[in-house]
Write a protein that binds this DNA or RNA. Structure first.
Lengths: 344, 344
DNA sequence: CTGAAAGCGCTTACAG
DNA sequence: CTGAAAGCGCTTACAG
C-alpha cells in the first residue's frame, strides 16, 4: 500500500497526530515542525487517504447531482452542461467533488439518492428539476437531508432552498416583446405540465396575452422530436388565422419547428416570428439566429451550488431562495409587423 | 448518528461480523439468521455506511471522469452528454458511481486527477480526450493507475487501454461519399491538431482525395464560434474554384457554417453540400437535416466504462482496444452534382 | 455456522 | 506546542 501518516511520523520523529495537524495547518504547530514534516511528506510522496478522512469526519466532501430520467432529447438539452459547469465552478472553488446519478428511470434514480444519502456518500444534493409528486423530494425532506433544488418546488415551497428564474415573468416578457412588435396571433410551444418550469412559462404566456386583451391562446405540449415539430407546423398552417409568431421554450424544439417551417416553404422571420429559451450556442448559430430568453444556466448552477455549500456550513440558516434574472437577447428571428400583416 | 452494524447486531443477538456477512450475503450464514438479521435491519432502517466500507476495502466503487478544459463551445458539444450517458449506463449496471472533474484549466484538472488517485477517491479513471503532451496521461501511466482513454492515445499506444472510432476511416468514407456523388472541390473544416481525433480525421480526408486523384486540399482549423464560420465562408466565396462540398467534424461548427452560408445567400444542398460528425439530435433537426457520420457516442462511453470495469476486475488483462464502428447517415444536406456543376 | 479481534488510515478531545 | 489513545463503522482472516 501507499505511504501513510505513520510512515511520515516515524521519519519525522513526531506522533501521527502531529502529522495530521500539519496537514490541517493547525496554528499551534511551530513553523519549524511544519516545515520538517512537509519536507518529509514530499520526500515520501505522501498524500492523505481521503477514504480514512471521510470516515472519521463522516463527510465525503462530495455533492450529489440528481438529474431527471433521460429522454433522447433531455440528453442533448444544452441547459444541462451549462448548469453543470456552473455548479462545477463553485464546487471546485470550495473543494467539493461532484457525484452524478447514473440511473435511467425514476425508480433507479430514487434508489441512487437513497444510497447516496444513507451511505453518506454525499454531504448534500442538488436536484436539477422540479416536478409533481417526486419521491426523491419527499425522501430528502423526510430525512432532513441538505439539498437545493434548481427550479421552483411544487410543494413545501417555504421549507426548500431553491434557485430558479422567474419563469412566469420571463415567458410574459418574451410574449410581450412579440406583442410590442405587432404580433397578435402568438402560439406557445411548451412542455409537460408535471414540471413546474412548464407550468410557470405557460402561465406567463397567458398573462401577457390577457393583459394585452388578446383572447386567443394556442398551446402545444409535445415531446421534442422532429416529428412533433412537423405535426405542430402542420396544425398551424391549417388554421384560419395562422399565428404570426411562436414562443418556444426549448432550443432543440425551436430547431425542430424551424426545420418543419422551412420544409413547408415558410420563411423566418418574414412569414413567422419565432423565439426560444436558454440561449446556448444553438440560439446564436441557428439560421436565422434566434431571439431568446437568456436564463443564465451557468449562473443557475453556480448559485445552486453556492446556496448548498452555505447550507452545509450553517444547517440552521434561513431557507432563502434565489431568483437568477433573465434577459431577452434580440436576434433575427423576429420581425416587426404592421397591422395589415397581423391578420392574414 | 445513524444506525450502525453494532445496533443491528445487538438487537439480533449476533456479532457485528455476522451482520456484515448477512449484508454481503455470505453463503455460510443460515437462511434463518439472514432473515432475522434482515428483518431487524429493516426495522431499524439500517443502511451500511459506505465511508467505512470504502476505507476497509480501500476502494470507493467510484470512477473518475476526466474532461478537457472548457471552452464556450466544448460546453455544448453534444458528444459529452451522450458519452456520459453511455458510461453512466454501464457503471450503473456494475454499481459504480461517477465522479466528474470540475476544473476549468488544464492545471486544475491535473491537480484533481492527482487528488482523486492519491486520495483513493476513485478506483479507476476514464479520460475523455486524447491530446499531445498530456500531463494527466503521463501521471496515470507513471503510477500505473487503472484508466481507459476515450480516443486514441498519441503515445504508449500499446500500454493504454482505449476506445475510439476509426476516425481516419470515418473521415475517408464521408469524403468518399461526397466524391461518389460528383464532388471534386471539397473543403475540410476540422480542429486543433494537438488533439488526436483531429489529426486522424484530417488524414482520412487527405487519403480520400489522394486516392481519388484530387490534388487540391483545403483545410481549416478554426475554433468554433459564429465569427469563425463567417470567416471561413468568406474565404470560400473568394476562391476561383469554390468548393462544392464541405466536410465539417463538429455539429455546432456545421451550424455556424450553415448560418454563414445562408447569410451570403447560398443554398444547401443546391449551391453547396455539407456534412458533419457525431449525429446528435442537432443533425436531425438542422435545416436542412445533415448528412452525418454517426460515431455512436453513447456506445463509445459504454465500451470505455465496460473496459475499465474489466480492467479493475483483472488488473493483468491484456490492454486491448475497442473500435466502435461508424456509419454514414444520409440526409438532405448533400446533393449529387454533374460534372458541369462541379467546376463553377 | 458464528464470534472475538484486529485493522483500514485518518482525526480529535484530553493530557501534559 | 506535542503525544498517546480512542474511535469513525465497517470487513476479514483466524479460531472454534
Amino acid at each position: 500500500m501507499g505511504v501513510t501518516i505513520k510512515d511520515v511520523a516515524k521519519r519525522a520523529k513526531v506522533a501521527p497526530s502531529t502529522v495530521s495537524r500539519v496537514i490541517a495547518d493547525h496554528p499551534k504547530i511551530t513553523q519549524e515542525t511544519k516545515e520538517r514534516v512537509r519536507r518529509i511528506m514530499d520526500e515520501l510522496g505522501y498524500h492523505p487517504n481521503l477514504l480514512a478522512r471521510n470516515l472519521v469526519r463522516q463527510s465525503s466532501q462530495t455533492i450529489g447531482i440528481v438529474t431527471k430520467e433521460t429522454t433522447k432529447h433531455s440528453l442533448y438539452d444544452p441547459f444541462f452542461p451549462a448548469a453543470l459547469k456552473g455548479m462545477g465552478n463553485l464546487l471546485h472553488e470550495k473543494d467539493y467533488s461532484i457525484q452524478l446519478t447514473t440511473g435511467e428511470t425514476k425508480e433507479e434514480i430514487y434508489q441512487e439518492v437513497v444510497k447516496m444519502v444513507q451511505g453518506k456518500n454525499v454531504d448534500g444534493i442538488i436536484v436539477l428539476y422540479s416536478r409533481d409528486d417526486d419521491p426523491v423530494l419527499t425522501y430528502l425532506l423526510d430525512c432532513d437531508f441538505p439539498f437545493v433544488m434548481l427550479g421552483k418546488p411544487t410543494v413545501h415551497v417555504n421549507e426548500i432552498m431553491y434557485v430558479d428564474n422567474d419563469n412566469v415573468k420571463a415567458a410574459r416578457e418574451i410574449t410581450e416583446h412579440l406583442l410590442s412588435i405587432g404580433h397578435r396571433q402568438i402560439a406557445y410551444i411548451g412542455g409537460d405540465l408535471k414540471f413546474e418550469v412548464h407550468k410557470d412559462r405557460e402561465q406567463g404566456y397567458r398573462e401577457a396575452l390577457q393583459m394585452a386583451g388578446v383572447q386567443e391562446t394556442l398551446i402545444f405540449r409535445e415531446s421534442i422530436t422532429k416529428e412533433s415539430g412537423e405535426k405542430i407546423v402542420e396544425q398551424l398552417l391549417k388554421m384560419k388565422h395562422r399565428p404570426t409568431a411562436v414562443v418556444t421554450t426549448d432550443e432543440l424544439m425551436c430547431l425542430s419547428i424551424l426545420s418543419a417551417l422551412y420544409a413547408k416553404g415558410l420563411r423566418v422571420p418574414e412569414d413567422i416570428a419565432i423565439t426560444t429559451f436558454t440561449d446556448s450556442l444553438i440560439s446564436e448559430l441557428a439560421s436565422p439566429p434566434l431571439t431568446t430568453v437568456n436564463i443564465n444556466p451557468f449562473q443557475l448552477g453556480y448559485e445552486a451550488a453556492k446556496s448548498l455549500v452555505e447550507l452545509l456550513q450553517d444547517p440552521d440558516m434561513m431557507k432563502r431562495n434565489i431568483l437568477v434574472p433573465t434577459s431577452i437577447v434580440t436576434r433575427e428571428s423576429c420581425k416587426k409587423i404592421t397591422e395589415n400583416e397581423a391578420v392574414i
